[in-house]
Amino acid sequence: MHRVEHVMGFPVSLRVDDEGDFAAAADAVFGRLREADARFSPFRADSEVSRLDRGELSVSEVSPDLAEVLALCEEYRVATGGAFDVRLPGRGLDPCAVVKGWSVQRAADLLSAAGARRFVLNAGGDVVAVGGPWRVGVRHPDHADRLCTVLEITDGAVATSARYERGDHIVDGRTGRPATGLLSVTVVARTLTEADSVATAAFAMGAEGAAWAAARPGCEVFVVDAERAVVRTPGLPVAGEPSATA
């Protein structure tokens, strides 16, 4: 089964290579992502995040899901010395850097619970892969038609933070300015919640983010810095030609 929908502002593709009928599980996957967008998008006036930001809800009144997301945001703020911050001065609360990976991982967990044993869920280039090996290509930060490397993932997740899709959208919370020093950060981790959050947090840290991400337990990284130098951890699961691009 192969299905593609546009959710949360980007294309999401689901490929299931198992025997059996997983149509209902696929419906649940995309339904979960639409629900997350409705509840946690800072761009929707009626979302829980927007209501909290306007003071219509207190922190003690938010849902357990949003409380979990906010706790993750705070964990990474502290871990990066404030470089990763979802409450930047002059801006509204924006937990999207955590919500994307968290919600996509939860959606993927629905497939596993439904009995799917071999599938890949690709959300705007961030990938959850189960029952591989699956090959995931990492885009070159300067050339859209070239790859830096190709990864082989069996059970895990890959996320990339870079400037090439949305420009200088990641801000260093310590300075309030767009993060500099890195061109792209790709992280391989057990879950997309961790891979996506670590990739964004490392990018926000700038040049020091490469070593910080590489030191995170359970994470393998591929980083291209502003001088086009590459930092790669020894355990990075490198493969051959790709079947998906992160």
Rank of each mutant, 00 (worst) to 15 (best):
V171M: 05
V171T: 13
D172S: 07
R174K: 13
R174C: 12
T175V: 10
T175Y: 08
T175M: 14
G176M: 09
G176V: 10
R177L: 15
R177F: 08
R177S: 12
R177K: 14
P178Q: 03
P178V: 06
P178N: 06
A179T: 10
T180H: 09
T180Q: 10
T180G: 14
T180R: 15
L183I: 03
S184T: 04
S184N: 07
S184P: 06
V185P: 00
T186C: 09
T186R: 04
T186Q: 02
V187G: 01
V188A: 02
V188W: 00
A189G: 01
A189F: 00
A189S: 02
R190Q: 14
R190K: 12
T191S: 07
T193K: 01
E194L: 12
E194W: 02
E194G: 04
A195L: 02
A195E: 01
A195R: 00
A195D: 00
A195N: 01
A195M: 01
D196P: 04
S197P: 02
V198H: 02
A199D: 04
A199T: 04
T200S: 13
T200H: 02
A201G: 05
A202T: 11
A202L: 04
A202Q: 03
A204E: 06
A207V: 14
E208W: 10
E208S: 15
E208M: 05
G209P: 07
A210L: 09
A210P: 04
A211C: 10
W212H: 09
A213C: 07
A214D: 08
A214S: 12
A215L: 15
R216Y: 07
R216D: 02
P217K: 07
G218Y: 05
G218I: 10
G218A: 03
C219T: 05
C219H: 06
E220W: 08
E220D: 15
E220Y: 08
E220H: 14
V221P: 03
V221A: 09
V221H: 11
F222V: 13
F222Y: 15
F222W: 15
F222N: 11
V223D: 05
V223H: 08
V223R: 03
V224L: 11
D225S: 11
D225K: 13
A226K: 07
A226I: 12
E227P: 09
A229L: 15
V230L: 08
V230R: 14
V230D: 05
V231T: 15
V231Y: 08
V231H: 14
T233H: 14
T233P: 14
T233E: 09
P234Y: 07
P234K: 11
L236Q: 10
L236C: 13
L236Y: 10
V238S: 13
A239P: 13
